[in-house]
């Protein structure tokens, strides 16, 4: 691979663009293709398949031995609430490969020194998400259990078909939330997608343990997501 190809690939990845690298195994030359651009006719089918499945593999085309590698954007995690659980998530999630952002309008919570290494947005979710909409490759964890802060981003995440929507709160808190969402006109099958109580049931107790349970649940949702239809596209 030429250094220029490596640089182009790394630039695409930094910009959250999906990329397929086609390497010619006879001489090591590589070409980088970005999703949404046009591809050479003889490679178009294999490149499109790679983008859709996310699966790398070798293929012989017109007598040339090629390798198709796929780089889909890393999944994002947006946490609502600059709370204790989010502090632990901010440590774990980047190691597991997630780009993480934390949104909390309460400036007493959202301080840079509590959250080093992740993006911290001390503003209302309504305002942040208007500028940076959620997408299918984003997980949303609502962690404030304050309806004024959590409800809007939960609805936005369901609408954007985020691969994971989790909400902190007891069964009773969640029952009240379900009722509010229903009254607001959110469809029952959308409401059923909310993971609550949040996190896999591993008996987590401390904020850090709950963060592990939440991250594990997010990974499960990502790896077992429905790849049918548009869901598999970056």
């Amino acid at each position: 691979m030429e250094l220029s190809a490596l640089q182009a690939l790394n630039a695409a990845r930094a910009a959250r663009r999906a990329a397929v690298v086609v390497s010619d195994l006879s001489d090591g030359t590589a070409r980088v293709f970005l999703e949404g651009t046009s591809f050479p006719a003889e490679l178009a089918k294999a490149i499109s398949a790679a983008f859709l499945t996310g699966r790398p593999g070798p293929l012989t085309i017109e007598g040339r031995s090629l390798f198709f590698n796929v780089h889909l954007p890393p999944p994002r995690l947006v946490a609502i609430g600059a709370v204790h659980i989010s502090q632990a998530l901010a440590r774990f999630a980047p190691v597991a490969g997630f780009d993480m952002a934390i949104i909390d309008p309460r400036t007493a919570f959202a301080t840079a020194e509590r959250f080093q290494g992740v993006e911290l947005l001390a503003d209302w979710p309504e305002d942040v998400l208007a500028a940076r909409p959620l997408d299918r490759y984003t997980a949303l964890a609502a962690l404030t259990h304050d309806p004024k802060i959590d409800d809007y981003p939960i609805r936005a995440a369901l609408q954007a078909q985020c691969f994971y929507v989790g909400a902190l709160g007891s069964r009773r808190t969640h029952a009240a939330r379900v009722e509010r969402l229903r009254q607001a006109g959110v469809a029952a099958e959308a409401i059923e997608r909310i993971r609550a109580p949040i996190g896999l049931d591993i008996g987590a107790s401390s904020p850090a343990e709950i963060a592990v349970a939440v991250l594990a649940e997010i990974i499960e949702a990502l790896r077992r997501r429905d790849l049918g239809g548009e869901g598999g596209k970056a």
Binding site: L6, L9, R13, P94, G117
Partner: peptide, 13 residues
Amino acid sequence: SETDVLEPLKVAE
């Protein structure tokens, strides 16, 4: 981030 440190393609560049 810590991911960068573990990311071989960035390290290669």
